[in-house]
Simulated scan of single mutants.
Amino acid sequence: MQARDVDYRCGETSLRGYLALDDNSAGPRPGVAVFHEGLGLGEFAMERARRLAGLGYVALAADMFGDRRQATNLQEVATLVGGLRAEPGELRARGHAALETLAALPEVDARRLAAIGFCFGGTVVLELARDGAELKAVVSFHGGLATKLPAQAGRVKASVLVCTGVDDPLAPPEQVADFENEMRSGGVKDWQVIAYGNTLHGFTNPAADGSIMRAAMYNEQADRRSWASMKSLFDEVLT
């Protein structure tokens, strides 16, 4: 397997992503962009990129904050994430910059792209779908579902999968219901929400132990099941 850093830009912002691909695969193959949690691009998103490469995809773990900045506490997370959420146009632009970088790689079939995201990254992939990105699928793992720019009728091209914890305070039941209504009113052709019982925020990350955020707790069963659901969707729309 090959893994390396990839530098790209969005306007004046320098971004440093992480690319993973299988050297033994021949010819262009589907590409998957991976969007990180609120802490920034770190080992968790990189490991997921390598795992996707092991499945035969070219995976680019994107950098949404610039210069691969990392947050160490909730105050820094709030500053970095809040700044982008306050400017959804910039958030979407940085997401598109990662997709364009991925699509331009010679190993990638630009007609078969998908995006996944965790926590803040889950919000990012949903914003890309709402913006009409040329994606076959987006998968949000414990991401925020609210938006300032709801999906417009006929705009969403991607199949949408949301994996959420029933007990996640960052995606409460009323937010889930609003998202479902948004998908209906936006005429999204293929969408699904899978809610895992007895599951909090951050359920895919083994490092989530409540130390940084009390509501963030790893759940091995929900992690395993949500990843399997992602693979099933990708098998359907990326082959």
Score class of each variant (00 low, 15 high):
Gly11Asn: 10
Glu12Asn: 08
Tyr18Asn: 00
Leu19Ile: 03
Ala20Cys: 06
Asp23Arg: 12
Ser25Met: 07
Ser25Lys: 11
Ala26Thr: 11
Pro28Arg: 12
Arg29Ala: 03
Pro30Ile: 04
Pro30Cys: 05
Gly31Trp: 05
Val34Glu: 01
Val34Gly: 01
His36Leu: 01
His36Asn: 03
Leu39Met: 05
Ala45Arg: 00
Met46Gln: 04
Met46Tyr: 02
Arg48Cys: 05
Leu55Lys: 05
Tyr57Asp: 06
Leu60Arg: 04
Ala62Gln: 01
Ala62Leu: 10
Asp63Val: 07
Met64Arg: 10
Gly66Val: 09
Arg69Gly: 11
Gln70Trp: 02
Thr72Asp: 09
Asn73Thr: 13
Gln75Tyr: 08
Val77Lys: 00
Ala78Cys: 10
Thr79Asp: 07
Leu80Ile: 13
Leu80Glu: 09
Val81Leu: 09
Gly83Leu: 13
Gly83Ala: 15
Leu84Cys: 12
Ala86Asn: 15
Gly89Tyr: 06
Leu91Tyr: 06
His96Tyr: 15
Ala97Cys: 12
Ala98Met: 14
Leu99Met: 14
Thr101His: 08
Leu102Thr: 15
Ala103Pro: 10
Ala114Phe: 09
Ala115Thr: 14
Ala115Asn: 08
Cys119Lys: 07
Thr123Met: 14
Val125Cys: 14
Val125Ala: 11
Glu127Val: 09
Glu127His: 11
Leu128Ala: 11
Ala133Phe: 08
Leu135His: 06
Leu135Gly: 05
Val138Trp: 03
Val138Arg: 03
